[in-house]
Nucleic acid binder design. Structure first.
Lengths: 198, 198
DNA sequence: ATACTAAATGGAGCAGCGTTCCGTTTCAGG
DNA sequence: CCTGAAACGGAACGCTGCTCCATTTAGTAT
């Protein structure tokens, strides 16, 4: 087959082929380990699972946040994209906001320990926090603004505060029947709504 | 002087005097360290601060939760007591609930990392969680029930879920001007309220 | 007052994890 | 094929939680 043109493979060209391969291997292994052991799983475990040394992981992903970010990048982008789509297609901005938050909450609660990590007081996850904000905050802000302009939501709430509040509500052990983050997020949204439609 | 009667000093009689003293020393040191380093501070640090060995701390407080519990016991009890008082004295059950939650939130946000520990996925703090629930859940339930009966609050919310939601909202680094747990808790309470008073 | 016993102590020691460092291996261009 | 550099792996270091045991000390019986 013909050699690749100047517009080569998608990921950075400047890497050696084996490095590129290892990057993928680590990503796959990490995704698997995250499911079973949470995003706090020991690096050694991920390295073993991937069949590489620890240094390899550290070289590709200097901080744990970089690794987690890379693993969930696609899903975060999808969430952001969904927000834009919803705003365009939903019956009302309020509906769009509700549905988007449902997506967001689903994403957080299905990733073992992700919400915990996002708000971790340690700064090991600072970059992850930053990435989430960078990608999702504008979306949330747009949805919120639209709902405010439509008169469905009281003005004055900052998107950052809302997102972090939702994230916080999603923290905790999963599968506790006595605590369903969705119910509390729903309550929060209720509190955000205008008293009457006037 | 006359020997002490059968109704002796308040803390457990079965301990030796030096053990009793050390217990207090550790408690004081721990309280100090918690303020500066959070409730996750290394045991070694607390031991050094108290001028005792680590084993001494482990003997008096087998788990970290026991230590934290002991340090904050009085304040937790005070919070529980305040709940009962408020219910009796406030203008309305809803007012009482609001004021009590303010107290609760204040308590959590002023204790560096306490809210984080309470919901920690690790079970190192399971006993702390249990203690909080044991002492404060009944109070919260009473306040909530009273507010529901007065018609101020929608029925259907479980006290456990509410308390944990509030606790979750208080998680995170302190002193972030962009995130004030109080505002979100207020929103949550708003969502709890009846649409109209009728 | 002295001797005795069991409670209490302290710190060394072991294990787990994060992170770095360096000798060795492997790729890719000449 | 040869060679330089990128990439690699795992040993090594530091920090933390927790335990174990030789030693000290308080309280009591004589």
């Amino acid at each position: 087959m013909a050699a690749e043109g100047p517009a080569g493979a998608s990921p950075s060209r400047s890497k050696r082929a084996d490095a590129q391969r290892n990057r993928e291997t680590v990503l796959t292994a990490a995704a698997g380990v995250f499911v079973t052991s949470g995003v706090d799983a020991p690096i050694r475990q991920i390295a073993t699972q991937a069949g590489v040394g620890m240094a390899t992981i550290y070289r590709h992903f200097p901080t744990r946040a970089d690794l987690v970010t890379a693993v969930y990048q696609h899903q975060i982008e999808a969430c952001a994209e969904a927000g834009r789509t919803l705003l365009a297609n939903a019956d009302s901005p309020l509906d769009a906001l509700h549905q988007w938050i449902d997506l967001f909450v689903d994403f957080l609660v299905t990733k073992h320990g992700l919400a915990d990590a996002l708000q971790s007081d340690s700064d090991r996850f600072a970059a992850l926090h930053a990435y989430f904000l960078d990608r999702l905050l504008p979306v949330c802000a747009q949805l919120l603004d639209a709902a405010v302009e439509a008169g469905d939501i009281k003005p004055g709430t900052q998107p950052y505060e809302l997102m972090r509040g939702i994230g916080n509500l999603c923290i905790g052990r999963d599968n506790d029947p006595r605590y369903d983050p969705r119910r509390l997020v729903a309550l929060l949204l209720q509190g955000l709504q205008r008293p009457q439609t006037s």
